[in-house]
């Protein structure tokens, strides 16, 4: 089976007032099924641009990108949308749930745009996805009735519900406190154990420590790519002790 992500010589340039800006200046990267990868870097390092390209929201200026064997750089806008729908799941820093829309309807959203008729009973799938992230009891809560951690769990359920080959998370813990961060990371680790491939963009070393592979970026290039034994977020959460 082809790797989930296969990137070669990826360049992404922007035309700005001060000339040509290379947000990505030649990136090579391969991610295999079952990996849990963190992409680290300061702002301006190119990690967000990489995420946009990986997420098929943006096209590279040069270089090749194959997502699950599909060459992305040659696809048109509609095909990119279909690819996002069928192969990718997104989790954002600011949750990006539809306001005034129940948890269940939010999780149903990606299946609305499924063109292949992959899901016979979308509602049952959505309930199951919410149950998996521990929100089986809050199907009909609105986002503003949920805590930040719970909202991010709804977003994770929404990303999971289509069984994507790759789950992309953009600063998923950026708006969360330490306890909730550990909570969400424990959820990601649980999904990872169940076989989901994850790629998490973050600027927090602590988050990267819970991943099995950490890639550090600087100035549009990969600075380091190391594998290590991840920490156990669930255990660390338990060590924090009960909520006071």
């Amino acid at each position: 089976m082809a790797p989930v992500v296969e990137i070669q010589g990826l360049v992404r340039q922007y035309q700005t007032g001060g000339g040509l800006l290379s947000a990505l200046a030649g990136v090579d990267l391969v991610v295999h099924d079952g990996e849990m990868v963190a992409i680290l870097g300061a702002s301006g390092s190119g990690k967000s641009t990489l995420l946009n390209v990986l997420g098929c929201l943006d096209r590279p200026t040069r270089g090749s990108y194959r997502l699950a064997g599909v060459p992305v750089e040659s696809l048109d806008d509609d095909a990119l949308a279909d690819l996002r729908n069928s192969r990718l799941g997104f989790v954002f820093q600011s949750f990006n749930l539809l306001p005034r829309t129940t948890a269940l309807d939010n999780v149903l959203l990606p299946m609305l745009y499924d063109r292949d008729g992959r899901f016979s009973d979308p509602e049952a799938r959505a309930r199951e996805a919410l149950r998996r992230v521990g929100l089986g009891e809050r199907l009909f809560h609105l986002p503003n009735e949920l805590s930040g951690g719970q909202q991010q769990r709804v977003a994770v359920a929404r990303a999971l519900v289509t069984e994507p080959r790759l789950l992309l998370a953009d600063e998923p813990t950026g708006n969360l406190d330490t306890r909730t961060t550990l909570d969400v990371m424990a959820l990601f680790q649980e999904l990872h154990r169940q076989g989901t491939t994850l790629l998490i963009v973050t600027h927090e070393e602590a988050v990267a420590n819970y991943c099995s592979r950490a890639i550090t970026m600087r100035d549009g290039r990969i600075l380091s790519d190391r594998r290590h034994d991840p920490g156990d977020a669930a255990a660390d959460l338990g060590a924090l002790g009960p909520v006071v």
């Binding site: 996002r84 069928s86 997104f90 499924d114």
Partner: peptide, 16 residues
Amino acid sequence: TREIGIRRALGARRRD
């Protein structure tokens, strides 16, 4: 606008 962005990220085509 943000809702439109979310829908597009989740796989909505322009036409949708």
